[in-house]
Simulated scan of single mutants.
Amino acid sequence: MARVCAICGKGVTVGMQYSHSHIRTKRIWVPNLQRVKAIVNGAPRRILVCTRCLRSGKVQRAI
């Protein structure tokens, strides 16, 4: 499973971390993904969804 939201496609972002002395090191930003049971094409499935999509109501949760 990739670290990508199934709804909006938000994924890992890479960049540089700068210390106080301006030493650069690579780092990654990982989205806050939750494994939820949702209705996909009329059937319940477990998918990875970012918290932004959950909060905004873009996901129909299955019980």
Score class of each variant (00 low, 15 high):
residue 1 M to H: 08
residue 3 R to E: 09
residue 3 R to G: 07
residue 4 V to Q: 02
residue 4 V to S: 01
residue 5 C to M: 07
residue 5 C to V: 02
residue 6 A to P: 00
residue 7 I to K: 04
residue 7 I to A: 05
residue 7 I to E: 03
residue 8 C to P: 07
residue 8 C to N: 08
residue 9 G to V: 03
residue 9 G to D: 01
residue 11 G to K: 01
residue 13 T to E: 08
residue 13 T to R: 04
residue 15 G to E: 01
residue 16 M to I: 02
residue 17 Q to R: 09
residue 18 Y to R: 10
residue 18 Y to I: 03
residue 19 S to T: 01
residue 19 S to M: 01
residue 21 S to V: 03
residue 22 H to R: 15
residue 22 H to T: 14
residue 22 H to I: 08
residue 23 I to M: 11
residue 24 R to M: 13
residue 25 T to Y: 08
residue 25 T to H: 13
residue 26 K to A: 03
residue 26 K to M: 04
residue 27 R to E: 07
residue 28 I to L: 06
residue 28 I to M: 06
residue 28 I to R: 01
residue 28 I to K: 07
residue 31 P to G: 05
residue 31 P to I: 05
residue 32 N to G: 13
residue 32 N to Y: 11
residue 32 N to A: 11
residue 33 L to S: 05
residue 33 L to M: 06
residue 33 L to R: 01
residue 34 Q to F: 07
residue 36 V to T: 07
residue 36 V to K: 04
residue 36 V to P: 03
residue 36 V to Y: 09
residue 37 K to S: 15
residue 37 K to G: 12
residue 38 A to Q: 10
residue 38 A to C: 15
residue 40 V to N: 09
residue 41 N to R: 10
residue 41 N to C: 12
residue 42 G to I: 04
residue 42 G to S: 11
residue 42 G to T: 12
residue 42 G to Q: 10
residue 42 G to K: 05
residue 43 A to E: 15
residue 43 A to Y: 14
residue 44 P to M: 13
residue 44 P to C: 12
residue 44 P to I: 11
residue 45 R to G: 11
residue 45 R to T: 14
residue 46 R to A: 13
residue 46 R to H: 14
residue 48 L to E: 08
residue 48 L to V: 05
residue 49 V to N: 03
residue 49 V to F: 02
residue 51 T to G: 06
residue 51 T to S: 08
residue 51 T to N: 08
residue 52 R to E: 04
residue 53 C to P: 00
residue 54 L to G: 09
residue 54 L to K: 09
residue 54 L to F: 13
residue 54 L to H: 12
residue 55 R to K: 15
residue 56 S to K: 15
residue 56 S to M: 13
residue 58 K to C: 08
residue 59 V to D: 05
residue 60 Q to N: 15
residue 61 R to W: 07
residue 61 R to P: 00
residue 61 R to D: 13
residue 61 R to C: 08
residue 61 R to M: 11
residue 62 A to C: 10
residue 62 A to H: 15
residue 63 I to K: 14
